[in-house]
Amino acid sequence: MPDYPYADPVVELTDLQEIARDVVVIPNRNVDLVPNIGLIGGTRAVLVVDTGLGPRNARKVLEFATAYAAGRRLYLTTTHFHPEHAFGADVFAGEATYLLNRAQADDLTTKGEGYLAMFRQLGEPVARELTDARIPAPDLTYDGTHELDLGGRVVRLRPTGRAHSKGDQVVTVPDAAVLFTGDLAEAGQFAIFPWFPPYDVDVSGVRWIEVMNRLIEERPRVVVPGHGDIGDAGLLTQVRDYLTELRDETWRRRDSSLPEATIAAEIRDLMIRRHPDWRLPEWIERGVGCLCTERPA
C-alpha cells in the first residue's frame, strides 16, 4: 500500500460556520477526502448533506446532527456517490431517512464496490476510515426535482445530469439563497475529473460547463463547494471559466494532431502558471484525457 502524503481524512467538528439561519457547515479545512458537510434545519426536521469518508466519520456527523436536531426528524442526502461524500450513509440507517436522485442510486449500485476497492488502495489512513464500510442503499429515490419540507423551510434537491459524475445532485435552500454543489465546484484547487478508462468514463467536461452555466444563472448568495472554502456565485464562475479554458486549450491542440501525452504535459504546465495557488494539479491530465474524447469530429 502506498504512503498517503496528505493529512488523515478525518471530519473535525471545529470552526463550524452558520451561513444562514439554521444552516450550518462542518468545513473540510482543505483536507483531502474530507467534504464540506451541511445541516439544514426547519421546525420539524433537519437535512444532513454528505457524510464524510466511512463509518467512523459518519458516526461523528450523526452524533452532531442528532444533538443539533434536538428532537427534530433527520434526513440525509449525498451530492454524489464518491466515497468521501456517501460511504458513511449506512451509519444513518434507522436514524435518518436517506433520499437520493435515482441516477446517484444507480451509481452506488453499479460502481460502489469498485470505488470502495480503489479507495482502500490509496493508503493506510484512507483504508482505516473505510474499515467496515458498506455500500449504502437509499430509503427513497426520486426523479426530477424533489422538494423536501422541513417545516417552514423547503429544500430543493435536483439532479443535474451527467457532469462530474452521472448522478450529480445539487441542494438549494431557496429562502436563504444557499447552494450545495458537491464536487461540481471546488475552491482553491483544480477540478476533479474521475476519468479512469475503461472503468469509469462518465465524467463529461462539456456537460459540466453547461451545468455550471445553469447554476450561475441562479445567482446564489452562498455557495458551499464539495471541497475548499465557502464562497459566493463568483466561485461558480471561476470553476466554469477554468473548465472552459481547459476545454479550449485541449481542443486547440487536439486539432493539430499532437499526441495526447504531449497535449496533457503542455496544458498542465500552462494551467499551473495560470493558477499557481491552486492545489491538486494531478487532475489536469485526467481532464485533458476526458476532453480529448469529447472533441467534436
Rank of each mutant, 00 (worst) to 15 (best):
R158F: 05
E282C: 09
G231R: 02
I19P: 02
R134P: 12
P225C: 02
D248Y: 04
D255W: 06
P5Y: 15
G182C: 04
A103G: 06
G152D: 07
M271N: 01
V49M: 04
M271Q: 12
N101Y: 03
L215S: 05
D255H: 07
F119Y: 15
T293M: 11
P35D: 04
L16D: 05
N57Y: 03
D255Q: 14
G41V: 07
P194M: 01
R162F: 02
V222A: 06
I263V: 10
A7I: 10
R221I: 01
R158C: 07
K111V: 01
T14N: 13
D277W: 06
G161E: 08
A65S: 08
T237I: 14
E95Y: 13
G182I: 01
Q238L: 14
R72E: 09
I192S: 11
H164L: 05
R207S: 15
V155H: 04
E186D: 14
V239I: 14
P2L: 10
T244A: 15
V126K: 08
R273S: 13
D50M: 00
S204T: 08
E218Y: 06
L116M: 09
L258E: 10
G112C: 03
L108Q: 03
R253K: 07
F64I: 02
T172E: 15
V10G: 06
P125Q: 01
K166N: 10
D202W: 05
G114R: 10
L243F: 05
L122V: 10
A45H: 01
R268F: 04
Y115I: 06
V203M: 13
V239D: 03
A89I: 00
R153C: 01
D183V: 00
F180L: 09
Y115D: 01
V61A: 07
Q121L: 14
L243Q: 04
A89Y: 01
T145A: 15
E186W: 00
C292R: 13
D269S: 12
L47V: 01
G42C: 03
T172L: 07
N213L: 11
E18G: 03
L179N: 05
V34W: 06
V155E: 02
G41M: 04
P159E: 13
G231N: 04
E84Q: 13
V10N: 08
E113Y: 11
R21M: 07
D15K: 14
W195F: 11
N30E: 15
R56N: 12
L108W: 00
Q17T: 08
V239E: 14
Y6W: 14
A93L: 08
V10L: 12
Q189I: 04
A45V: 09
R73L: 09
D229C: 04
L270H: 14
A187F: 08
D3I: 15
V224T: 04
E147Y: 03
T141P: 00
V10D: 11
